[in-house]
């Protein structure tokens, strides 16, 4: 426990805030808010009568919003997201952005399509709003530095702009990312363990078995239904891979191992984390080329988790990702003696 609260100056959370919000604003958020406004103007009830949304928001009594509010939703979300990115009123901006992102994406989920790709960044926005360390290199802290300097405070700039925080934040983000992968691995174990181990489930998807999102599956010749399918696209590479049962078994085992043990790799140590990210990157590329889903948001998060460490290794030629806090303390002590 004391390890979790040990102080360190970590760049993972500030970098995650900046990169993730930059990516989401450019791809999903602007798109989503534009889409939200366009949909509300053209076919308002399409959004409003998603079963989940009607049930949950209808109970709150504030949906649908009045027309003027609708027109303001897109720009307000955009400004909020930019504030979170540059770090102006960082935590409130992160919280509002995260909540809005989650509500917008919940519409699709209400219709029975749980989009797994934005679920991870949605959770991480909320995590960043709460965890210590995410306000590093924010405009808030730069303004604080300027104010302190005007008052004659000579504290080193880095102590104010990116102060040491408990390690918990960095480890927590790794654990949340790992939980998503483990969930996916356990779902395979739970639903179809033996066919997964033999490679036949993966083979079925890669060979184009799930060719339409409209299908349900269940036992033969029965009124009972088990679930609906996630569509896998049929690609030449996927078909080629599916032609080899041995290849399917190997890929299935690698997939299961990567997913099930993700949190262990992500928490164990920084080199373990790098190893996991390399494997996960390859895994996502193969999934994209064979089954279709890109999971770009997940790849970006994975890479951000290891970039500060790799940069520090590259720059200093040593394995310590962060300036050790003890050395800061030693410097302060020497200063005090002088």
């Amino acid at each position: 426990m004391s390890g979790l609260l040990r102080l360190q100056r970590d760049l993972v959370l500030p970098l995650l805030r900046i990169v993730l919000l930059g990516w989401l604003l450019a791809t999903r958020f602007i798109g989503a808010s534009e889409g939200l406004r366009a949909s509300l103007r053209k076919h308002p009830l399409e959004l409003l009568h998603a079963p989940h949304l009607e049930r949950t928001l209808g109970q709150l009594g504030w949906w649908p919003p009045p027309g003027g509010l609708v027109a303001a939703v897109g720009p307000a979300l955009l400004i909020c997201g930019i504030c979170a990115l540059i770090g102006l009123a960082t935590r409130p901006a992160l919280l509002l952005t995260g909540l809005a992102f989650i509500v917008i994406n919940a519409v699709g989920s209400g219709w029975g399509f749980f989009n797994h790709t934005p679920a991870l960044p949605g959770q991480l926005l909320l995590a960043l709003a709460l965890l210590p360390g995410s306000t590093g290199f924010s405009l808030d802290r730069c303004l604080l530095l300027a104010w302190r300097r005007r008052r004659g405070d000579s504290t080193p700039w880095l102590e104010i702009v990116c102060p040491p925080v408990p390690r918990f934040g960095e480890i927590f983000v790794g654990a949340v990312v790992g939980a998503f992968y483990t969930a996916s691995g356990l779902a395979k174990v739970r639903a179809d363990l033996l066919p997964w181990l033999s490679g036949s489930t993966l083979q079925w998807y890669l060979a184009g078995g799930a060719r339409s999102l409209q299908y349900w599956y269940g036992p033969l010749d029965s009124d009972t239904i088990s679930g609906h399918l996630y569509m896998g696209q049929v690609s030449p590479l996927g078909k080629w891979l599916a032609s080899s049962s041995a290849m399917m078994a190997v890929l299935s085992w690698v997939t299961l191992a990567t997913e099930l043990f993700a949190p262990v790799f992500l928490i164990l140590g920084r080199w373990w984390r790098v190893g996991f990210v390399v494997v996960a990157f390859g895994f996502h590329v193969v999934v994209r080329l064979t089954l279709g889903p890109a999971f770009t948001d997940w790849i970006i998060v994975d890479v951000v988790l290891v970039v500060p460490f790799l940069v520090s290794v590259f720059r200093r030629g040593q394995r310590s990702a962060v300036p050790v806090v003890e050395s800061d303390a030693a410097i302060s002590e020497i200063r005090a003696r002088l």
């Binding site: 679920a119 991870l120 779902a187 033969l220 088990s226």
Partner: peptide, 18 residues
């Protein structure tokens, strides 16, 4: 949403019907 058990591509109706 956004909590998930991530069931995508987990089950296949190998012996079952579509």
């Amino acid at each position: 949403w956004p909590y998930t058990c991530a069931p995508m591509f987990a089950a296949s109706p190998v012996d079952n019907a579509l």
